[in-house]
Write a protein that binds this DNA or RNA. Structure first.
Lengths: 251, 251
DNA sequence: GCTGGGAGAGGCTTA
DNA sequence: TAAGCCTTTCCCAGC
């Protein structure tokens, strides 16, 4: 395809905020939060109606170069037989230059910008909501008190109270809990204990826990419950639960 | 475009590991680590040669649905006038089904899978390499001992020794350091202190630090140096440095 | 607009 | 494979 011809199509597509696809041989340079150089090669460039810019190779999910809220300038230098697309943005200031040596394919589609209409199920918030409905299945008399309790240094997922009137800090993870999850829980537990000046427990609820994280958790006298939840529609359904070690306060 | 015709092109492209682009009206369902439903709408589907699958709307950088290492099955039900592309993978087990009602455009390009040929500058590793060249500009007599020192629970970016022979654990961040960066540093510092049984310092080097993180850092007696570096080619250049509070061991 | 934190994070490296 | 961690993380919700 002639570069001059491609330029026409591209300019029009960008102006009309269409979904623009370009397949061609190019090199690219990026300067902004970091910097990068991409040598010559055949690539796919996708420019979306909202100013999203993504240059893809034929592997991996993520683009090699990308930009949000880009504004474009397009320049064709016939003497160098090169079509240069420059994407810019401010805050932070970034630039990507794509130098097309040849263009194999251009396609522009009038696609609705629409709102994000994806409905996602099985998020951490959903799981937390479900737990707020009741915690008796974990332990009789354990009842949720407050969800998303803000502390200076983070947010307690669920604050609860057990049958003995002790405060229970609950940290929820929708997937493999790691070292950070446990240090988070410990931190919140310590804050609450200091704040309220009474015995406080810390419970981590997750489908799984990393071994090193489990070690720390046990050393700190925190509790872990393995939760088995079904990703459902419209909400996560808790299928099972398994206690992984004794409570500090159990004999 | 006829669905039956599209099916031929798509099947061939997938088999030949070409970069495949499909623009069409579809709905989609995902089931795996979470679950999602995407109602009818015009979208772009990109299937790459390495099995990367991404369904894009005309906004945002990230796809609404995606999968790595997908294997495909394609089915055309003429009675329902529907072309169904199913992407599957195991570990974890995931499925995406895309139901095409109509297809506006299909394009397949024989694009090299190649190796990742992007050269990126201004990474943390680069910054760390630069610091390994010498730390005298931070403090006279401070010298790097080891880079990327592995611990059971993580990696020390730089282990150094100061003029007094004390071990210094250095954590480097290329951008705003957060609470986690400080807990990381504290963890490594504690491990080293216990291991070596002698006075140990912990230094965080970053262009900026979050206020809550700074609080923790100061409470823990750790040190923060604000680094000002220029993203260069081929390496980050350290332009300036500012000490943000006194060392524990200073009067 | 900036800030904080989750994500179906992705992707890389090493044990 | 699991663990740990960096990323031009992206993205959203809250302030």
């Amino acid at each position: 395809m002639e570069l001059a011809e491609a330029k026409q199509v591209i300019e029009r597509a960008l102006h009309e905020k269409k979904m623009l696809l370009i397949v061609g041989a190019c090199k690219a340079e990026y300067w902004g939060r970091a910097a990068s150089k991409l040598p010559q090669g055949k690539r796919l460039l996708v420019c979306k109606g909202d100013g999203s810019f993504a240059l893809h190779q034929n592997k991996l999910l993520r683009p090699t170069n990308y930009m949000m809220n880009a504004t474009y300038s397009l320049n064709h230098d016939p003497s160098k037989s090169e079509l240069v697309l420059e994407a810019r943005k401010t805050n932070p200031k970034e630039t990507i230059k794509v130098y097309f040596e040849s263009i194999e394919h251009v396609y522009a589609s009038d696609m609705d910008l629409g709102k994000s209409d994806l409905r996602l199920f099985g998020t951490e918030k959903e799981l937390s909501d479900q737990l707020m409905q009741g915690l008796d299945f974990i332990e009789p008399g354990l009842r949720p008190v407050k969800q998303e309790n803000p502390l200076r240094t983070g947010m307690i997922d669920i604050l609860a109270e057990d049958a003995q009137g002790r405060l229970v800090v609950i940290e929820v993870k929708r997937r493999l809990a790691d070292y950070d999850a446990v240090t988070q829980l410990r931190r919140y537990m310590e804050v609450v204990k200091k704040l309220k000046g009474k015995e406080t427990r810390g419970i981590l609820i997750a489908p799984e826990i990393r071994s090193t994280a489990k070690d720390l958790l046990e050393r700190e006298g925190l509790e872990f419950y393995k939760i088995d939840f079904e990703i459902g529609n419209p909400r996560a359904k808790i299928k099972g639960l398994e206690k992984k070690q004794k409570t500090l306060f159990e004999s």
